Structures are given as structure tokens and as C-alpha cells.
Amino acid sequence: MASTVASLPSPLLLPARKSQSGNFSTFPVSLLSGRRKHVSFIVKASGESSESSTTLTVFKSVQNVWETPEDRLGLVGLGFAAIAAFWASTNFIAAIDKLPLFPTVLELIGIFYSVWFTYRYLVFKPDREELFQILNKAASDILG
């Protein structure tokens, strides 16, 4: 632990001092051979991130649906349908991949579409701004 703390850049190391809000534990660290200093770490949490709050709202909405007895069967059916759709799509893609000419045609279509998309939306600045507007509109439609 001491070698990890000693290798941190200097702004992350704080000299030990009394805090008004309480005592924090200090760790003896050898920064230079023969010299010992005490270093204290103070970690403060800032508000919630949007990612964790989104995850919590999705979790809470599923939990609310699960608590209603008549919706429980629908939720289980939806989960089963998602698993069945995933299984079917992987088998469908594997079957298409075994056809001799089809994967090459799909690869060429993908290459042509990528070139068109790059030329249409990424090369010129007004087109990039149009793409950002389209993406922002789609995100606002999805998230509400």
C-alpha cells in the first residue's frame, strides 16, 4: 500500500492536518528513504450520476411491475420472448453465414453503406450538424 501511495502525483497527496469535520485516519508513508510523513485521504461524494439514476429508474419500474400479480405473468412472458428471439436470431445468422455467396454480398452492401454514410454525414461540417440534430431528436424521443 505504501508503494502505491508513494507513487501518486503530489497533488493527490495531502499532508496530515486536523479537519474541522472529524478525524481521518492517517497512514505512515515513506516518500523518501529515511523520511516519514503522514498522509490522509479525504474522499467526498458528489451527486448521483445520470447513468446510475437511469439504471435505478429502470430497475424500479420492473420492480413495480413485478409487485402487481396480474402483470407478473406478462413480465415472465416478455423475458422468455426476449430469450427466444435472441436464440432464433443467432441461429438465423449462423444459417445465413453458411450460404456460399450471401455473406460476401452482405459484406459488400455493408462496405458501400459505410462509404455512403461517411460521405453523407461525416465529411462536411453542415452534414455533421444535421447528424447531431437527428441523433439528439432520436434520443429525446426515446428518453421522453
Rank of each mutant, 00 (worst) to 15 (best):
F24D: 09
F80R: 02
V115H: 08
L78N: 04
S50K: 15
L8W: 15
S7W: 02
D127Y: 06
K98D: 04
R35S: 13
D71Q: 01
R120P: 01
L8Y: 13
F132L: 14
L99W: 05
K137A: 10
N64S: 12
L122Y: 05
G47S: 14
M1N: 13
Y113I: 04
Q63A: 09
F112E: 10
L56D: 10
A95R: 13
Q133T: 08
S49H: 14
T68F: 00
K60N: 15
S7N: 15
K98V: 00
G77C: 02
G34C: 07
G74M: 01
P15M: 08
W116K: 09
D97Y: 03
T68M: 02
R36H: 09
S30V: 06
K44P: 05
L78C: 03
V43M: 14
P100E: 09
A138T: 04
V62W: 00
S140F: 03
L14P: 03
Q63V: 06
P69C: 03
W87F: 10
F117S: 00
A2Y: 11
T26E: 12
S114P: 07
A95M: 08
E129I: 12
L122T: 03
T90W: 13
V123M: 11
T54I: 04
N23F: 07
T90Q: 14
S21N: 14
A2D: 12
L106K: 12
L106I: 05
A88F: 02
L131I: 03
T55F: 12
L12G: 07
F24S: 11
N23M: 12
G79D: 00
L56W: 10
A16Y: 00
L75A: 03
E129D: 14
L13D: 02
V58H: 11
F102Q: 01
W66S: 02
A82K: 03
I111Q: 13
D127M: 10
D97Q: 10
V123E: 09
Y119F: 08
I93K: 10
E107G: 08
K44W: 13
I142T: 12
T90H: 14
A94H: 11
P15T: 05
L143M: 14
M1L: 14
N91G: 04
F27R: 14
S89M: 13
K125N: 14
F112M: 09
P11N: 07
S19A: 13
V29M: 06
F27E: 12
T55Y: 15
R36T: 09
G22E: 02
N136S: 13
S89N: 03
G144A: 08
P9Q: 11
A84F: 00
L13R: 11
Y113H: 02
L56V: 00
E70A: 01
